[in-house]
């Protein structure tokens, strides 16, 4: 679905600072891809380039990123904008200020959609939103809430809901659970997995926390100092890490024992 071919990314034009150096990878259909690596290793930069967000000085110096969505001709990342909130959506890190403080949640749920989906019978849209939220185990009362009335965890779940209501082929989530406590974090991970299983689409989850990837990712991409150093199925990488950095990363984790139970529980819950 996404083809990243020997891409070098960085910031600034006169004093170009490299953030991602010669990265290549493939993101396929119907999978959960985890992107791991310490902070500053270029994960966010790579995600922004895939999403086609070339604001604040981000530049693609060499290589190319191509997206092939169903029912659409292959598209270069520089034109990705056309597919925003249709084929592709993203989940930002839910800080206090990521939602418009003066707008109720239900408006922010639909205002990224194309016009024909946004406009129309209000009550029908409302009913659809309520059913959708109920499916995600979210109370319909959040629709009429303002952002400041939501807790941090609830706000993050709303952001996940906003990105998935679009029903896109690809969802990018950059550190969606960072800064949340473990219980809430788990809930959001379950929500992401469930949505992915239901839509059969692709989820790219960025996290510096290998524990998170261990719980839900089908495949892993390990980044280190701006380079992709290792890719492969999660189980394989955990069983047999090849790169020295990956070995260090896995060695530093506390005892792991939840993967099988989480994944099988999820698989059972969502046929």
């Amino acid at each position: 679905m996404i083809e990243v071919d020997n891409v070098t990314l960085g910031y600034g034009s006169r004093n170009f600072i490299t953030a991602v150096d010669g990265a290549s990878m493939t993101i396929g259909r119907n999978e959960i891809v985890g992107v791991a690596g310490e902070s500053g290793s270029g994960k966010s930069t790579l995600m922004r380039a895939i999403y086609g967000d070339f604001s604040t000085g981000l530049r693609l110096r060499s290589g190319r990123i191509t997206a092939t969505f169903p029912d659409r001709a292959p598209i270069d990342c520089s034109e990705m904008r056309k597919t925003w909130w249709q084929d592709i959506s993203y989940v930002p890190q839910g800080s206090m200020s990521v939602l418009n403080p003066l707008m109720k949640v239900h408006k922010q749920l639909i205002d990224g959609l194309p016009k024909h989906k946004r406009k129309g019978d209000r009550r029908a849209i409302r009913r659809d939103l309520e059913t959708f939220l109920a499916g995600l185990d979210l109370d319909p009362s959040v629709l009429d809430a303002y952002p400041h009335q939501l807790s941090g965890g609830m706000r993050q779940r709303v952001l996940v809901a906003i990105a998935s209501y679009v029903g896109p082929h690809l969802i990018l989530a950059d550190e969606p659970t960072t800064a949340l406590d473990v219980v809430v974090q788990k809930r959001i991970l379950l929500m992401l997995v469930e949505i992915q299983r239901r839509l059969g689409n692709t989820l790219v989850l960025v996290s510096h926390d290998l524990g998170v990837h261990y719980q839900i990712a089908d495949r892993l991409i390990i980044m280190f100092k701006g380079e992709v150093v290792e890719t492969g199925p999660t189980d394989e990488i955990f069983a047999n890490p090849k790169h020295e950095y990956t070995q260090r990363l896995i060695g530093s984790l506390p005892r792991l024992g939840t993967r099988k139970s989480t994944v099988t529980a999820l698989r059972r819950a969502t046929p």
Binding site: W85, S97, V98, L99, M103, G112
Partner: peptide
């Protein structure tokens, strides 16, 4: 430069709606 404006832009909102619904009300406060 606010996060919520950036997020709205990345949702694909047009400039007019970004100005009218996100920036204007917040700037008027």
């Amino acid at each position: 430069e606010e996060e919520f404006v950036r997020y709205a832009r990345l949702k694909g909102l047009s400039d007019a709606r970004l100005l009218g619904r996100y920036i204007l009300p917040n700037a008027l406060l």
